[in-house]
Design a protein around this nucleic acid. Structure first.
Length: 266
DNA sequence: ACCCAGGGTAACT
DNA sequence: AGTTACCATGGG
């Protein structure tokens, strides 16, 4: 039995906001604790006033997975302190501690293919069924199914997911990733424009899904996904574009604005 | 019954 | 090059 691993609470960090702001879809909360799976590892995490507790977690697992997953080497305090306009300041004031998680590229790609013309509760349901049906491990703790696994399936095989017209897109993405048509290693190292072009070769991947994949799966924090909420934000608040203080970190500004706008009624 | 959801595609002007 | 119907599904 592993022990738990505890670290002092990082600055500009809020566990609930990181896990439930619409960037990752496999986390559930149970009182003050959050549980979920990333990189094939099941974990329970709790944030207290002063600490972050990783249950059943070794220091090795923390260093090799969770430290990176929560982007703990990035100084978000420095980034958000640059915000010099009232909307961004307000979003950070209300939702301080959102970070861009470093998810697995395939999980991010597949998840945001599922997200198209869909809502977050339903996205979570489809992904949960996807993992239960085709992932590996104990029920409730299963890994996200690999592209290789899904590449061998048919649209009919995916019918239990109730993913609708997105099922064929999932299969096409899995095949292109598995047969090397899409090269994740190169997308990671090349400038963002390369990933934009490559990812959109997948059926059902347009500009927005590509942008989400680059932001959440490849940690390209200058990616700027524009969904219906961000579209509203840009029309209502930034008709002349994002303020200059977000240059190079547009994806982080996007996450604060997206969550802030989505949480307010109307 | 109608509208919307972290959109994209194909078929139109 | 810029619009528009349509795509499955489920909640409000």
């Amino acid at each position: 039995m592993k022990n738990c691993f505890t670290i002092p609470l990082p600055k500009t960090f809020n566990l609930s906001l990181c896990l439930d702001c619409g960037q990752a879809f496999r986390w559930r909360n149970d009182g003050s604790k959050w549980h979920g799976v990333a990189f094939g590892i099941y974990i329970i995490i709790e944030q207290t006033k002063t600490e972050l507790i990783f249950y059943d977690c070794t220091e090795e697992d923390f260093n090799s997975i969770w430290k990176n997953y929560f982007d703990l080497d990035c100084d978000y305090t420095k980034i958000v302190s640059k915000y010099d306009d009232n909307y961004l300041k307000q979003a950070v004031k209300e939702y301080n501690g959102i970070r861009i998680l470093c998810q697995e590229p395939w999980e991010a790609l597949c998840s945001f293919i599922i997200s198209q013309n869909n809502n977050i509760p339903r996205i979570k349901g489809i992904i949960e069924r996807l993992c239960e049906e085709f992932g590996e491990g104990e029920s409730g703790k299963k890994s996200f199914p690999s592209a290789e696994t899904l590449s061998k399936l048919t649209v009919e095989d995916l019918s239990p997911l109730r993913a609708g017209f997105r099922a064929k897109y999932i299969i096409d993405a899995a095949q292109k990733v598995t047969n090397g048509e899409i090269d994740f290693a190169k997308i990671k190292t090349e400038p963002i424009e390369y990933g934009r072009e490559e990812l959109q070769k997948i059926k059902g991947v347009g500009a927005k899904v590509a942008e989400c994949t680059l932001l959440y799966g490849f940690h390209k924090i200058d990616a700027f996904p524009v969904d219906v909420w961000v579209k509203r934000i840009m029309a209502e608040m930034y008709p002349n574009g994002l303020p200059a203080c977000t240059k190079g970190t547009e994806g982080i500004a996007q996450q604060y604005l997206f969550h802030w706008r989505r949480m307010q009624k109307n």
